[in-house]
Amino acid sequence: MSPTIAQLVTASVGKMAIRNGQHPANETGKEHTMWHTFDTLPDIGRKFIALYNDGSGASLFYRHEDGYLDEDGNEFGDDLHSYDYWAYLPAGKSFWCEDRSDDPVKLPDVSAGCLTEDEKRDQADRCGCRGANDLCGCQNEPDAATVAKRAAMIANSPDDGGH
């Protein structure tokens, strides 16, 4: 039995992370899972790739409070039955619709950007280093709780974030 696309991509990404000095584990020491099923939905305000369940390819999406946008900036709704697995895109990865010169779509990326001092303090409380290590991820990149908090702020803001 040959491996699935998700298994191949997960193995490949895991090897690249280890070669680049990153350990494929989260802050609690549990194994990091890159691919998720849709039993667990992506966080609001995040971009992700979803694999077709027939193995024919993948699509890029952005999740907002009312559903999903595809990589062209078109409303997709919330029917993702054609997809089996999803994974977050790297922070700062832009879609074509964001970069086009005529009528670009603004998609706030809650996983990108510098941490505020309050976010650093909150993340330090959740991390084993307690913020003492300036090179630790808790002081340099948003963790899942910070991303969720940022997404909630966008969802509750009077401006609908361009949707």
Rank of each mutant, 00 (worst) to 15 (best):
R19H: 14
N20H: 15
N20K: 15
N20C: 15
Q22Y: 06
H23V: 00
A25T: 13
N26L: 13
E27V: 06
G29Y: 04
T33K: 14
W35M: 13
T37V: 09
F38M: 08
T40Q: 14
L41T: 12
P42H: 03
D43N: 13
K47N: 07
K47L: 07
F48M: 04
L51R: 00
L51S: 00
Y52V: 07
Y52Q: 08
N53L: 09
D54R: 06
G55D: 01
G55C: 03
G55T: 03
G57Y: 00
G57V: 01
A58M: 15
A58C: 15
L60R: 12
F61W: 11
Y62R: 02
H64Y: 12
H64L: 10
E65P: 04
D66K: 15
G67C: 08
Y68C: 07
Y68M: 11
Y68N: 05
L69Q: 02
E71L: 07
D72Q: 14
D72G: 09
G73E: 01
G73R: 00
E75N: 09
E75F: 11
F76W: 07
F76R: 02
F76L: 03
G77C: 05
D79K: 03
L80C: 12
S82N: 12
D84I: 12
W86Q: 00
A87D: 01
L89R: 04
P90C: 15
F95Q: 03
F95E: 03
W96N: 10
C97G: 01
E98H: 01
E98M: 06
